[in-house]
């Protein structure tokens, strides 16, 4: 059976590699891929959408409908992770570990023992695997995280002009929260950015995208035809497309950020949202 599979793989791979010989050369100006549609996008992209970054204009406008579903894929992935992994905490059961902050002593409290208050300043709960004092890591992250977030906002807002946009900016925003969760602990990250926030923000993000499309529908144009938003935004039709792209990019950023954080919460704690990494 294994031999059979190997033969099938070699045959398929061989066929595909063999066929590359018949392809147009790399960068060939006369290849169908370079002479047909891409010419249109390059020549009309900026005039049509007022976005100098052609990738953005194709992604968020000419083929914006595909991108809406790519955002939905991210949303569905987050939802699927929650649906499959999330489980309610079993009451009691595992021992917990606390650090007495003034002295630095760690205490292990077995099942049934008296636990300190959840928001106690004196006792801080630690993950059950030994966590040393991490002064440098924690403080570095505290300094770095705001800059990551500002850069993320720049990446989202500047998607029209340079590489970037909602997906990349959303990932950066999510990374900042995940960095906080890793450098501090999962519980405190969840206290700042709760599961419910993540779930609702994900829905909201896709809703901004699809809702913008539906708004165009209500304004009498086709789905996702941002041109129809011109009277609402008080600009001309081309500028309306440019603004429309920005609006949907913000929606994408919301959805991607919330879903990546939610997936991290569920994966890192095996769905218990208690301890993780």
């Amino acid at each position: 059976m294994r031999l059979l599979a190997l033969i099938a793989v070699i045959l398929t791979g061989g066929l595909i590699i063999f066929q590359t010989g018949a392809f147009p050369d790399f960068g060939d100006a006369n290849a169908p891929a370079n002479t047909y549609l891409s010419t249109y996008y390059l020549e009309h992209g900026q005039a049509d959408t007022h976005a100098p970054n052609i990738v953005t204009s194709v992604l968020a406008d000419y083929r914006g409908y595909d991108t809406m579903f790519e955002t939905t894929v991210v949303f569905a992935a987050g939802l699927a992770c929650f649906f499959l992994l999330r489980r309610k905490k079993v009451p009691g059961g595992e021992p917990r570990i606390y650090r007495h902050m003034p002295t630095g002593i760690t205490l292990r409290i077995a099942d049934g023992g008296k636990l300190p208050a959840e928001d106690s300043e004196v006792f801080r709960r630690l993950d059950t695997e030994f966590v040393p004092q991490q002064l440098i890591i924690k403080n570095t992250c505290r300094i770095v995280i705001p800059f990551i977030q500002i850069f993320a906002l720049y990446v989202i807002a500047h998607g029209h002009y340079s590489p970037g946009g909602g997906f990349q900016g959303g990932v950066l925003l999510a990374a900042s929260i995940i960095l906080y969760a890793i450098s501090h602990d999962l519980r405190r990250a969840i206290r700042r950015f709760s599961e419910k926030t993540a779930a609702l923000m994900g829905s909201l993000g896709v809703l901004i995208y699809a809702g913008t499309g539906a708004l165009c529908l209500l304004m009498g144009a086709n789905f996702l035809n941002y041109k129809a938003l011109a009277p609402l935004l008080g600009v001309d039709a081309v500028m309306a497309r440019s603004h429309g792209i920005l609006i949907v990019e913000i929606g994408v950023a919301f959805a991607v950020m919330a879903m990546i954080i939610w997936i991290y919460y569920n994966l890192s704690s095996a769905g218990k949202h208690d301890e993780g990494l």
Binding site: Y41, D61, Y62, G64, F223, L224, N225, Y226, K227
Partner: peptide, 8 residues
């Protein structure tokens, strides 16, 4: 979709 004619 988005008002662009095919194949654009």
């Amino acid at each position: 979709m988005a008002g662009w004619s095919p194949p654009i």
